[in-house]
């Protein structure tokens, strides 16, 4: 298991390969559909320092407020492919080094990972209780009123957050490999 603490350098991220199990520590920022559209269309400046060298996590959590403090109750990944139109540009615009989500992403993001030096880290879909336990503190939340709880940009600190590299900065994608193989089997089954 490789341990990674955000923010990270481009060199560090370039050493990662598809299949590596990576345990994450430090600050991550949550963002899904509304956040990506906002970053892509309006390019807000106030989040530049926050995002530089760090990671965006595709997640809409279940949260609870206890004594004025936010607690993460459930926080697994959401499907990443919805951010495909934005992700590559957002990655470069905000100098991100990683994306966390589930299901993998497409060619445009894969090319951006290679060009910019970043990785796609896969978290296990549905393991929300387990992943929420890795959240040690909620530092801040942006756009809560406008986007609502699942879509807001939560700034959290994590410890030992488990992921697997499924798309790396060398053009490799586990998702492409698996799909290529299963397509052959499916074609055979369908053509009888």
């Amino acid at each position: 298991m490789i341990s990674l603490k955000f923010p990270v350098s481009e060199e560090e991220v370039r050493t990662l390969k598809v299949g590596d199990e990576v345990s994450l520590n430090g600050i991550m920022v949550l963002g899904r559909d509304n956040a990506h559209a906002w970053m892509y269309e309006e390019k807000p400046d106030e989040i530049r320092n926050l995002l530089k060298g760090t990671v965006i996590y595709h997640c809409g959590p279940v949260v609870k407020k206890v004594d004025d403090e936010w607690i993460f109750v459930a926080a697994g990944p959401t499907t990443s492919i919805r951010e495909e139109p934005y992700q590559g540009d957002v990655l470069k615009e905000y100098d991100l080094r990683a994306v966390i989500g589930k299901g993998g992403m497409g060619d445009k993001t894969l090319a951006a990972l290679k060009e910019h030096g970043a990785v796609y880290l896969h978290a296990i879909g549905g393991t929300a209780a387990l992943l929420a336990k890795a959240v040690v503190k909620v530092h801040d939340v942006l756009k809560l009123e406008e986007f609502g709880i699942p879509e807001a940009m939560w700034v959290i600190e994590v410890k030992d957050f488990p992921t697997v590299v499924t798309m790396d900065s060398h053009g490799q994608s586990l998702h492409q490999v698996i799909k290529g193989k299963s397509n052959i089997v499916a074609d055979k089954l369908i053509s009888g």
């Binding site: 997640c59 809409g60 959590p61 279940v62 109750v73 459930a74 926080a75 697994g76 296990i124 879909g125 549905g126 393991t127 929300a128 209780a129 387990l130 929420a132 336990k133």
Partner: peptide
């Protein structure tokens, strides 16, 4: 995760 959710009475998936 399923066991943890049951014990802690938290959602299995967010």
């Amino acid at each position: 995760n399923a066991q943890m959710a049951r014990e802690d009475e938290t959602p299995i998936c967010q």
